[in-house]
Computed example of a mutant assay.
Amino acid sequence: MNEPIKTKKISGRDRAYSYVRNIILSDPETAGTFLNEQELADRIGVSRTPVREALFMLATENLLQLVPNRGALVIPPSPDEIRQVMQAREMIEVWSVRHRVADHARIAATLEARVQAQRDLPNDAEFETFIELDRQFHLDLIRFSGNPVLSQMYEVLQARHITLGIKAMKRSAERLAQVLAEHQAIVDALAAGDLDRIEAAIRAHLDMTFRSLVLPV
């Protein structure tokens, strides 16, 4: 007789952490606002204790600031933090593609599918849907490095990645088309197997993202 498959139970703290990090903090409109423990607990369906633990974890990641008698403040990213996030992403992404030279054609095929999925989105698709595909595009780039520690490090940047990506889209109607062109340039460089061209395409993409976030509209 086959034994039933055991599934790992997700703790209330982890549910709260995932909800706040992936749903609340991915919305640029929440920047500068306070989160209420009880309201979050009611939404998630847990008690206040796991919510408090989750907020503390997010505060250690500098995504929130815990203010006594006020709640958890969603910290708006400063220009310096945006620059630092882009610098960290650049170092990880460039190292990843230089480390797996033999896999460039396979990486290009995978990323081409991501770009096509972005192109195929309907005109009325939510920015969040486009940015989720954008997130997967860059995460695929890292996963091909074969270094799980590097992938985990990159995952830490994902909350900011999503927030900043949506913010960039909302600031400029042209940014979506620019991202598609920049992603395609990365794919084409990978398909050509030109390391310098790949690195230049990644740097150009991240630089344009930074500029779209900090320069006046």
Rank of each mutant, 00 (worst) to 15 (best):
Q38V: 14
L111M: 12
A59P: 00
A109L: 13
R114W: 02
R43G: 04
V85D: 09
P50G: 06
A72E: 06
D27F: 10
F34Y: 13
N69W: 08
D42S: 14
R48T: 14
E39I: 07
M86S: 10
Q118T: 09
H99G: 01
W95K: 13
L73P: 06
G45D: 12
E112S: 08
P77F: 05
R119E: 10
R98M: 11
E93W: 08
I92D: 07
E93H: 13
N62P: 00
P77H: 09
V97A: 03
W95Y: 14
V101F: 12
E29W: 09
P50S: 08
S47E: 08
E90M: 11
A108D: 04
T49D: 09
D42Q: 11
E81L: 09
R21F: 08
N22C: 07
I82R: 02
A59K: 02
R89W: 10
M57T: 09
L64F: 01
R100I: 07
G32R: 03
L55H: 06
N69M: 11
Q38T: 15
D103S: 11
P77T: 06
E39F: 07
N36W: 03
L40V: 00
L58Y: 04
A31R: 08
Q38I: 12
L73A: 03
T33L: 11
E81I: 01
V97H: 01
T110K: 14
A31W: 08
R89H: 09
R119W: 11
A109E: 15
R114H: 12
D27L: 07
W95F: 15
A59T: 04
Q65K: 11
A102K: 07
L63T: 01
L73W: 10
M91E: 15
A59V: 03
I23Y: 12
I23E: 13
L64Q: 00
G32W: 00
L40I: 02
R114P: 01
W95E: 12
R89K: 15
R43F: 09
A88F: 07
F56I: 13
R89P: 06
R43I: 14
S78Y: 07
R48P: 01
G45F: 10
Q65T: 04
I24C: 06
R21D: 10
R70N: 13
A41N: 01
E53R: 14
M57K: 13
H99T: 11
D42F: 05
A109F: 04
F34S: 10
E53P: 03
E61M: 14
G45K: 03
L64N: 02
A54F: 07
